[in-house]
């Protein structure tokens, strides 16, 4: 199993994604799984991602960053993967995109182009943060934690060798557990519930029936 990850880091949302993805990288390393490259910050470029996808053979690719229905963006909003343009590079791979909207157009296009699976979001990905207090240490942000514990679970499960639909289901279970905890506790952070629920409802898993 080989893993490729993009982690741009150029504004607040990507700073948080960058930090929380470090837990996935650490988990992979602890399991002895090779990360082909951690394309972080400026390395999250189109040139690099295309080169690695063409020349290496990652079985799992995770994209962090911003997106729209047909595009995943890298550092400084450079388009990395675009539907109907270079999505064929995703052929044979399990893809997880932690970005907005790409589940709408890019996801189905990636499957049609031969990707094994595509887990992403069909609406805007949301997260609450206390960025003024935790921008330098996002892993300590209690508002952000539920959004990343639930979404990180996709990769934790893929890394364990699970099929995409099972990895997605594991993630959904984490969402439901966290939602249940917030509903039944006296937590002052209950206001994040509707947005956590939104992400859960809009997380989709597409699988290639021809794999």
């Amino acid at each position: 199993m080989l893993i490729l990850i993009t982690r741009p880091k150029y504004e607040i949302a990507t700073v948080f994604c960058h930090s929380w993805t470090s837990l996935i990288i650490e988990d992979a390393k602890n399991r002895g799984i090779k990360i082909i490259d951690d394309l972080e910050k400026r390395k999250a470029s189109r040139k690099n991602i295309e080169s690695y996808l063409k020349k290496q053979d990652p079985s799992i690719v995770m994209f962090n960053g911003h997106g729209n229905s047909a595009t995943i963006f890298g550092h400084d909003n450079e388009p990395l993967i675009e539907a109907f343009k270079n999505s064929a590079l995703l052929k044979g791979k399990d893809i997880y995109v932690r970005a907005c909207d790409s589940g709408k157009v890019l996801g189905p296009d990636a499957i049609k182009a031969g990707a094994n699976s595509f887990i992403g979001y069909k609406e805007l990905f949301r997260m609450w943060t206390q960025e003024d207090d935790f921008l330098r240490n996002p892993l300590k942000d209690p508002l952000a934690k539920p959004f990343f514990d639930s979404s990180n679970q996709v990769m934790f499960s893929l890394i364990k060798g699970k099929e995409a639909k099972d990895a997605n289901e594991d993630s959904i279970k984490v969402y439901r557990k966290l939602i249940s905890q917030l509903l039944t506790s006296q937590s002052e952070n209950f206001f994040i519930l509707s947005d956590l629920y939104w992400n859960m409802q809009n997380q989709i898993c597409l699988e290639n029936s021809n794999k």
Binding site: I12, W128, T129, L143
Partner: peptide, 13 residues
């Protein structure tokens, strides 16, 4: 008041 919601491709919450 110190909470921010990040939604979409806005560069800050």
């Amino acid at each position: 008041s110190n909470a921010s919601l990040h939604v979409g491709n806005e560069e800050r919450g």
